[in-house]
Design a protein around this nucleic acid. Structure first.
Length: 303
DNA sequence: AATAACTCCAACCGCGCTGCG
DNA sequence: TCGCAGCGCGGTTGGAGTTAT
């Protein structure tokens, strides 16, 4: 039943990629550009399935990928976006242009989810006892945040970075790359914030705009939705109910209908929807504001 | 020093969506 | 309209590395 695995073929290699394989893949993509993954294994002689090639490229070899060292700001973005979008890692990743969905997903699962859970427990007990230990909580949580974000990453990543750097040089020189860049440029909304967010973000923005995700939502509704109370309750809901996106996403759906419904309802698409703007605005400091707000509101930090 | 327990992340798997013939 | 191929996404896993005992 179901589709047979794409890597079922005998002779298809699995497991970690070697630098040699990376070079072969990168060279091929340099020549032909990313895409048409089906033909990659046959044309390169790599004993990998197309899926594996695509994954390796998108998650590690693609130029411009930043690895390890999530900044507190990035963490804040992830936490808010996760609360807002649920486990839609690709969507979240589009707001963090240098991070891959896999990276964000891993980081959430290994660091942030635990921390949120831990914090919620602490918050619950502090609310019950109505103690005034919030400042201690804050400093501890902040220390935790800082120490984790200072951690570095895998060993092979460095050689991957080298390949990426080599590739960046090619991206600048290659006419294909220029075309690609142009295409991405076209997707950029004409908003001054875009220079911060980058192409991946604009891609998502466009996707969202195409979906008409926000077109029918009133500004007021969204402001209510993004109010601290909602953000917080969603975040806590989320962190306490395993990893299903239902908590926050269903909140969204309850209020605004499913993506499909919204898509169906909307044909007039704003260049920017409110949630985009809100998130983009975070780049200029709203995350910090919200964090401050959270302290004021319930005497307890988000992290 | 040995090893058990734990953490982290690269890679895999399966499913859904989309486009095409 | 249907079936298939290709691609993208999210969940899960395996194993290397790290820490605790």
């Amino acid at each position: 039943m179901g589709r047979p695995p794409c890597c079922d073929k005998v002779g298809v290699k699995k497991g970690p990629w070697t630098p040699e394989e990376d070079i072969i893949l990168v060279s091929y993509i340099q020549e032909h550009g990313p895409g048409n993954w089906r033909s990659v294994p046959t044309n390169t002689g790599l004993l990998r399935c197309s899926k594996s090639c695509r994954l390796r490229w998108t998650n590690y070899l693609r130029p411009g990928i930043k690895r390890g060292n999530f900044t507190p700001h990035e963490e804040g973005m992830i936490i808010h976006l996760q609360a807002l979008l649920g486990n839609r890692w690709a969507a979240i990743a589009s707001y963090l242009p240098q991070r891959t969905d896999n990276d964000i997903k891993n980081y959430w699962n290994t660091h942030l989810k635990k921390r949120m859970k831990k914090f919620q427990t602490a918050l619950d007990s502090s609310l019950v006892s109505n103690s005034s230990s919030s400042s201690q909580l804050l400093s501890k949580s902040q220390n935790d945040m800082n120490s984790t974000s200072l951690r570095s990453c895998s060993t092979y990543a460095s050689s991957t970075e080298n390949i990426s750097k080599l590739l960046e040089g090619w991206m600048k020189a290659s006419p294909k790359a220029t075309t690609l860049k142009k295409d991405q440029e076209k997707e950029k909304p004409s908003n001054e914030n875009t220079n911060v967010v980058g192409t991946a973000s604009s891609q998502f923005t466009q996707t969202k705009v195409e979906e008409g995700e926000c077109g029918v939502i009133s500004h007021e509704e969204l402001e209510n939705f993004f109010s601290f109370e909602n953000l917080n309750s969603m975040a806590w809901e989320k962190s306490s109910t395993d990893s299903t996106p239902q908590g926050s996403l269903s909140s969204l759906n309850d209020r605004f209908g499913t993506m499909t419904e919204v898509k169906e309802r909307s044909s007039n698409r704003p260049a920017y929807c409110f949630s985009d703007k809100w998130i983009l605005d975070e780049e200029s400091g709203q995350v910090e504001d919200l964090m401050d707000l959270s302290l004021d509101c319930c005497s307890a930090p988000i992290f």
